[in-house]
């Protein structure tokens, strides 16, 4: 099988330019999603909020049940119209069409990440157990402090493996934003390969890059997990 290795080498260096974009999207999405998802998980952990719980269940079910590409297309079409509407109503001097697609991508991915992460954190909070919270209250800590100093750290340690999977899923999903013309790894190579039709080489390079990135993330999480082993939740 004859592969054009020269093209592979050149497209590899080309693709490197897309890595910062991927990382930027991933990091920004996580920065937005993790706090919001955690807040939702805490809110749902309280006992008497039936309507809130129902609303979020529907939201999570919708995100879980629809393909990401459909979410991308719908939100990408809807959001500018929505923004234009708000801007016109408030008469802000803002050009909707000047917004870089990257920010739409971040918003869209946050939309689905928040759903997944809220479920992850809910499981984590359940794993920590009510006893820890009661002990904190009995020792005089306020509810807020109890959460920030005792509950949240343990919930995080407990969900690290699943969190790793979620982050990797985010990285893989980010490959889809070539559909909205974002210049990340997949988009760059697709354009390059369409010129000389050496698709296979190009995609092999992309595949290799994603595998390396994901494995690096897994390694980081393994290190974190080892550090957190001491905080193991006791039965």
């Amino acid at each position: 099988m004859v592969l054009d290795f020269g093209f592979m080498k050149s497209s590899f260096f080309l693709a490197l330019r897309g890595i910062p974009v991927t990382l930027f999207i991933t990091v920004m999405t996580l920065l937005i999603s993790i706090p919001i998802a955690f807040a939702i998980a805490v809110a749902r952990a309280g006992k008497k909020r039936k309507t809130l719980n129902l609303l979020f269940s529907v939201y999570v079910s919708a995100v879980r049940g629809t393909p990401v590409i459909v979410q991308i297309l719908i939100i990408y079409t809807m959001l500018p119209d929505l923004l234009k509407f708000i801007i016109e109503k408030l008469a802000l001097p803002f050009n909707v069409y000047a917004i870089n697609n990257i920010f739409y991508a971040i918003l869209i991915f946050s939309f689905s990440m928040i759903a997944f992460l809220s479920e992850v954190f809910r499981a984590g909070l359940r794993a920590v157990g009510r006893g820890q919270y009661e002990a904190a209250l009995a020792a005089g800590l306020s509810g807020f402090r109890a959460y920030t100093r005792i509950i949240a750290p343990q919930a995080f340690s407990a969900v690290l493996p699943v969190l790793c999977t979620s982050v990797n899923n985010l990285i893989k999903t980010s490959s889809l934003c070539f559909a909205i013309a974002v210049n990340e790894i997949t988009g760059i190579i697709r354009v390059a390969a369409s010129r000389n039709l050496h698709f296979v080489e190009g995609f092999l390079v992309i595949a290799a890059i994603y595998v390396i990135i994901c494995m690096a993330v897994e390694l980081c999480f393994k290190i974190l997990e080892n550090k957190a082993k001491v905080h193991r939740v006791s039965a």
């Binding site: 002990a135 904190a136 005089g140 800590l141 306020s142 100093r149 005792i150 006791s234």
Partner: peptide, 21 residues
């Protein structure tokens, strides 16, 4: 069930309530 704070050392378990409570 003791309910010690799993993510704190023995000493920290004792001082948490003192400092923050």
């Amino acid at each position: 069930n003791y309910n010690l704070f799993n993510n704190k050392t023995a000493l920290e378990n004792v001082t948490e309530g003192l400092i923050y409570g």
